[in-house]
Amino acid sequence: MNKQFSKEVISKLKYYVYIYSDPETNDIFYVGKGIGNRVFSHLNSSGDTEKSRLIKLIRDRGQEPKIEILIHGLEDEHTALKVEAAIIDLIGKEQLTNRVRGWQSGVFGRVEINQLISHYEREQVNIEEPAILIRINRLFRYDMTDIELYDATRGVWKIGNDKDKVKYAFAIFDGIVHEIYKVLAWFQAGSTFNSRGSFDDEINRWEFIGQKAEEAIRTNYIGKSVEHYFPKSAQNPIKYINIKESI
């Protein structure tokens, strides 16, 4: 196997997206982007990662991982990052050894048409009910299951007694409402089952249990923009709406 490109090849490749797969099964286990000889760098990695362990396993069989360039000739890294994110979303991160999803895949990755329209049209809506807006930008992805979205929204949060005044919790990503839950009760973080794992070590944090809001409420707000409720510099993921905050 060649382990480096010539200068001539590099000049033609420009930025590219590549995949590693198992030669016996053809199962893809890594997606990456690069320029120059980046594609070969994993072959020399000494780190203890799932990817390096799998490469070692393949080599212990007397084989080499299959390396393919999916697309090349890309003019800039920004474009390569978007393509990489789309490929990771298509295959599914759970099938890969990539530690993280693709760059900004929450925005540029796999997305259903109506969600894409909501993201770019950004129809602004004003909320009339007592509510808490919860931004889940770090955890969100468009292909989340209902339970994954629910658990990402409901906890765990560092909030005070005003939480008990809210009726609805809004799941917000990039300023857009993606789901609304009717809050039934709040509990100490880690005290209820959560598909994300245990939060027993979280001190002074809370999680709610609830159910999807009435269809009329969901129809009014899902897919609409509430980014006007968050100042540009706002770091707090939580925003109360129509709540008289405690003094």
Rank of each mutant, 00 (worst) to 15 (best):
L133V: 06
L133D: 05
L133I: 02
I134F: 09
I134L: 15
R135Y: 09
I136N: 13
N137L: 08
N137A: 11
N137E: 14
R138F: 09
F140H: 14
F140E: 09
R141N: 02
R141L: 00
R141G: 00
Y142E: 00
Y142K: 00
D143W: 00
D143L: 00
D143Q: 00
T145S: 06
T145I: 01
D146R: 01
I147D: 00
I147C: 02
E148P: 01
L149H: 08
L149I: 04
L149M: 11
L149C: 03
Y150P: 01
Y150K: 12
D151Q: 08
A152G: 06
R154I: 11
R154A: 08
R154M: 11
G155I: 11
V156M: 07
W157G: 09
W157A: 13
K158T: 06
K158H: 13
G160M: 05
G160D: 15
G160K: 09
N161P: 02
N161D: 10
D162L: 00
K163Q: 13
D164P: 05
V166T: 04
V166A: 06
V166L: 00
V166F: 08
K167G: 08
K167V: 05
K167H: 10
K167C: 03
A169I: 12
A169M: 12
A169P: 00
F170G: 03
F173Q: 10
F173W: 12
F173L: 04
F173H: 15
D174E: 15
D174Y: 11
D174V: 08
G175Q: 13
G175T: 12
I176M: 08
I176Q: 13
I176R: 11
V177G: 10
H178E: 15
H178G: 10
E179Q: 09
E179R: 09
I180T: 07
I180S: 04
Y181Q: 04
Y181W: 02
V183D: 06
A185G: 06
A185M: 06
A185Y: 11
W186Q: 11
W186H: 07
F187A: 10
F187H: 15
Q188F: 04
Q188C: 09
Q188I: 05
Q188M: 06
Q188H: 08
G190Y: 04
S191M: 07
S191P: 07
S191G: 08
T192W: 03
F193E: 09
F193K: 15
F193P: 06
N194S: 04
N194R: 06
N194G: 03
S195L: 12
S195R: 15
S195D: 11
S195V: 12
R196E: 04
G197C: 03
S198C: 14
S198K: 15
S198Q: 14
F199Y: 04
F199L: 06
F199K: 05
F199W: 07
D200K: 15
D200R: 14
D200P: 01
D200M: 12
D200I: 14
D201L: 15
D201A: 14
D201K: 14
E202S: 04
E202M: 03
E202G: 01
E202R: 05
I203R: 13
